[in-house]
Computed example of a mutant assay.
Amino acid sequence: MVTVYGDSVSGNCYKIQLLAALLAIPMKWVEVNILNGDTQTPEFLEKNPFGKIPILETSTGDIISESNAILHYLADQHNITGKDPLTKAKVLQWQFFEQYSHEPYIAVARFINLYLGLPADRLEEYQQKQEGGNRALASMDLALTTSPYLVGDELTLADVSLYAYTHVADQGGFDLNRYPAILAWINRIESLPNYQPMQCGTESKS
């Protein structure tokens, strides 16, 4: 059994929980509080010198960091990674999109609001994230008008990666009612067998 260290409120960490639930992958979860400095302790830094979560520790003590890399490790024996080279490339395309065009806006805005309580000295940064976040959501919404999932007719890691922060984007100030195809996609994922909701932090913080 693998051990995963993460924060259940974090979208990047929730990806791992969701995938493990959907594929019935056994996993030991160790909760880590980043605001309390848990990722900066000598014990944690020995596992990951970058001081970031999530990290996965194998039964042999090997460490894997970066959420999307962990997803691929866990799903390597499942079709969810893509059945052919083209599908796999499209899955990776969306995962790179998530890391570079989606998360820097939606996840950061959510962090400023949900974790930090929207302090005055971060308000301008929070507002600046709205344009980029809505641009990312619009791109997803357009893609989802042509297929039920981001890469065709079946769930892939692309959906798991992007669902995590998208379904709680309202916590970063984004109005998902503007994106009906995304809302339908969210409902589709939440109707899957073994779906596991985010354990905490799912209520918007005003």
Rank of each mutant, 00 (worst) to 15 (best):
L56Y: 02
E57S: 06
E57H: 02
E57D: 04
T58S: 15
T60L: 02
G61Y: 09
G61W: 10
D62F: 10
I63D: 05
I64L: 14
I64K: 01
S65C: 13
S65V: 06
E66V: 03
E66I: 01
I70C: 03
L71N: 02
L71E: 02
L74F: 10
L74P: 06
A75N: 01
A75R: 02
D76G: 00
H78I: 12
N79Q: 13
I80A: 06
I80C: 08
I80L: 07
K83G: 12
K83D: 09
P85D: 14
L86T: 13
T87R: 05
T87M: 11
K88D: 01
A89W: 08
K90V: 05
V91K: 07
V91D: 07
L92G: 00
L92F: 04
W94P: 00
W94M: 00
W94E: 06
W94C: 01
Q95W: 02
Q95V: 12
F96T: 11
E98W: 10
E98S: 09
Q99H: 12
Y100D: 02
S101N: 15
S101C: 14
H102V: 08
H102E: 06
P104K: 13
Y105V: 01
V108F: 00
R110V: 03
R110K: 10
L114W: 02
Y115L: 11
L116P: 09
L118M: 14
P119Q: 03
A120S: 13
D121S: 04
D121E: 13
R122G: 08
R122Y: 15
R122A: 14
R122C: 13
L123C: 04
E124R: 12
E125H: 12
E125Y: 08
Q127C: 08
Q128G: 13
K129H: 00
K129C: 01
E131G: 01
E131N: 09
G132R: 11
G132T: 14
G132L: 10
G133P: 13
G133D: 12
S139W: 14
M140N: 07
D141Y: 06
L142A: 13
L142I: 04
L144G: 07
T146S: 03
T146D: 04
T146K: 12
P148A: 08
Y149W: 09
L150W: 04
V151W: 00
V151R: 05
G152C: 02
D153M: 08
D153N: 15
E154G: 00
L157I: 12
A158Q: 11
V160F: 11
S161R: 05
S161P: 00
S161A: 15
L162P: 09
Y163P: 14
Y163M: 14
T166Q: 06
V168S: 07
A169P: 04
D170M: 10
G173L: 08
F174P: 10
D175T: 04
L176H: 06
N177L: 07
N177V: 00
R178L: 13
L183F: 00
L183C: 10
L183P: 02
W185E: 04
I186V: 08
I186Q: 07
R188H: 11
R188G: 07
I189S: 03
I189M: 07
E190Y: 04
E190Q: 10
S191L: 03
S191P: 06
S191D: 06
L192C: 05
